[in-house]
Amino acid sequence: MIVPNSIEKLTYLKYLDFSNNFFEVLPNSITRLLNLQTLNLNYCFYLKELPGNIQNLFNLRNLYLENCYSLTHMPLGLGQLTSLQVLPWFVVNKELTCGGLPELNKLNNLRGELSIRIKVLVKDATSKAKDANLKDKQHPRKLKLSWDDELGKDVAGVCEDENLMESLCPHQSLKMLNVEGYQGVRFPSWLPSLTGLVILEISNSMCQRLSLE
């Protein structure tokens, strides 16, 4: 399926469902659909990137990205969509040309599930993770933090992973936490503060100590 640039003519469109399709990119003209509230891209397995100027979709409430595993990065400007409530998939990659963790800073209306995929060694991890401001996001019930298997880790890299994890402190109302591929030796000090946690999953990780004190 090819999405034509002329889709911008559907100026009153509020709901757009492109789920289960095989395209790799979407035309930037989609960002001229200023009334769009829901963009469903679930199960678009080959989708590599979201359109630029995505901040123009200021009415967007729901951006469904389940199983969009080929996404390489998030676009700059995503963090300006402060009305977003659904954003299940967030990819962290090189930040020279794409949006990083700070794009999450003002997205405090997010709810449901948030999955953050780390595809690159995050430098200055403490600052960038704090800028993500997860602690002020009261509504997400499930948080998944995962690291790509290909990321080689020396001692400095392991320290950055630990700093990243320590600074990605979620809100205490979180119900489910899934950690996959974490290469740090120690788990973050904030875990005991998640007093409402009912499910904790840790897989394929190097963590040697889990402290609940």
Rank of each mutant, 00 (worst) to 15 (best):
H139C: 10
D149W: 15
V155H: 00
C169P: 01
P188C: 05
K123V: 14
N163I: 03
L151V: 10
A132I: 05
S167Q: 13
E162S: 03
K142P: 00
M165Y: 01
R141Y: 10
G184P: 08
K130S: 06
F187I: 10
L164G: 02
E150I: 09
P170Q: 07
D131P: 03
D136G: 05
R186F: 05
K128L: 11
Q138P: 00
G181F: 08
H139V: 08
K135V: 02
E162Q: 14
D149M: 12
A132L: 08
D154Q: 11
C169Q: 10
V179Q: 01
A125T: 03
K135A: 01
W147D: 01
D149I: 14
T126K: 15
E162W: 07
C159V: 03
Q172F: 09
V185W: 14
K175I: 13
L145K: 03
L143R: 07
C169R: 15
S127M: 11
G181S: 03
E162T: 05
G184F: 04
W147L: 05
V155G: 01
F187E: 00
E166G: 00
D131W: 04
D149L: 13
D136M: 10
L174N: 04
Q172T: 04
D154N: 15
Q138E: 10
G181M: 05
Q138L: 08
L168H: 00
Q138Y: 03
V158S: 04
L168W: 00
R186H: 08
H139N: 10
R141E: 14
G181W: 07
D154G: 15
D124K: 14
K144S: 14
A156H: 10
P140G: 05
K144T: 08
L177S: 05
P140T: 07
A156W: 08
M165Q: 01
L143C: 06
A132N: 03
D148M: 15
A156E: 11
S167M: 09
E160F: 12
L177P: 07
L174S: 07
E166S: 03
D124P: 02
V179T: 01
L177I: 12
L168V: 04
V158Y: 01
Q172P: 07
G184Q: 04
A125I: 06
Y182L: 11
P188D: 03
R186M: 08
P170I: 15
N133K: 14
L151I: 13
V158R: 12
A125M: 02
M176Q: 14
V179S: 00
E166T: 02
N163M: 11
E180C: 11
V155T: 02
E150H: 07
L177M: 09
T126E: 09
E160G: 09
Q172D: 12
S167L: 12
L145M: 09
V155R: 05
L151C: 12
S167C: 14
H171Q: 07
A129R: 02
L168F: 01
P188I: 09
R186I: 13
P170R: 08
Q183H: 10
G181A: 09
D136H: 09
C159T: 08
G184Y: 04
K142R: 10
A129P: 00
D136K: 11
A156K: 14
S173T: 12
R186A: 07
G157P: 11
P140Y: 11
F187A: 08
D148Y: 07
S173Q: 12
D161S: 08
L177E: 05
A132E: 02
A125Y: 02
K137C: 08
L177T: 08
R141C: 06
Q183L: 11
D149T: 15
R186S: 13
H139P: 03
G157Y: 06
A129Q: 00
V185P: 12
